[in-house]
């Protein structure tokens, strides 16, 4: 009995020391971590909606209504220039080949896609992972939100067509689905 108490006490001592060290360093780093994460997201949003000077998340009521209606939408930010809203940055998650592909789509208030960015994915390196290339992402730029975007395998001949990444149709579809969700969200909820 005495031994168990003694062993327990020693273990308690070690774990409490560990807890103190971790608690202190958590306090020391948490501010920086939050700032770094926020800055990374802000940079990504600015990339897809360059016109905006700063971003604010939508009012809670409207945001909750959107998020509850579609679980594939993760974040909706309104981009401001001065006092005016110039567009929206919408983050979506759609299933790709190796898990969810997270895409931020920038849409201006006039209903044009200002840019997209694949921010998180687990697609195959060399194939699906090429979705992060500027070449692929720039295809979406300046497209009109009124029409659905489709994926084709060859050189696009029509408006609102995207050329699929070679050997990675599933990834291309996933990105395009994400952009389409953002597009519809803008058409149905945000532009009104």
């Amino acid at each position: 009995m005495r031994e168990i108490v003694k062993l327990g006490l020693i273990l308690l001592l070690i774990t409490s020391a560990a807890a103190v060290v971790l608690g202190l360093s958590n306090a020391a780093t948490i501010g920086t971590i939050e700032a770094v994460e926020a800055k990374a997201s802000e940079v990504a949003r600015k990339e897809v909606l360059p016109e905006a000077e700063n971003f604010k998340t939508l009012e809670e009521e409207k945001l909750n209504e959107i998020l509850n209606g579609n679980e594939k939408v993760l974040e909706v930010y309104a981009g401001y220039k001065g006092e005016n809203i110039v567009g929206y940055a919408i983050k979506t998650a759609t299933p790709g080949y190796g898990g969810n592909v997270e895409v931020i789509t920038g849409i201006s208030t006039e209903g044009k896609i200002t840019g997209i960015k694949v921010v998180k994915h687990q697609e195959t390196p060399g194939l699906g992972a090429n979705a992060t290339s500027a070449e692929f992402q720039n295809q979406y730029k300046d497209m009109n939100t009124s029409k659905e975007i489709t994926v084709v395998k060859t050189q696009p001949s029509n408006e609102n067509e995207i050329q699929a990444l070679t050997g990675a149709t599933i990834t291309s579809d996933a990105v395009t689905n994400g952009v389409n969700i953002a597009r519809e969200l803008f058409n149905n909820k945000l532009s009104k």
Binding site: V21, L22, S25, N26, T29, T32, I33, V36
Partner: peptide
């Protein structure tokens, strides 16, 4: 955990 936190930051 320390490494994890500091790397993240």
């Amino acid at each position: 955990t320390l490494i994890d936190m500091f790397m993240h930051a």
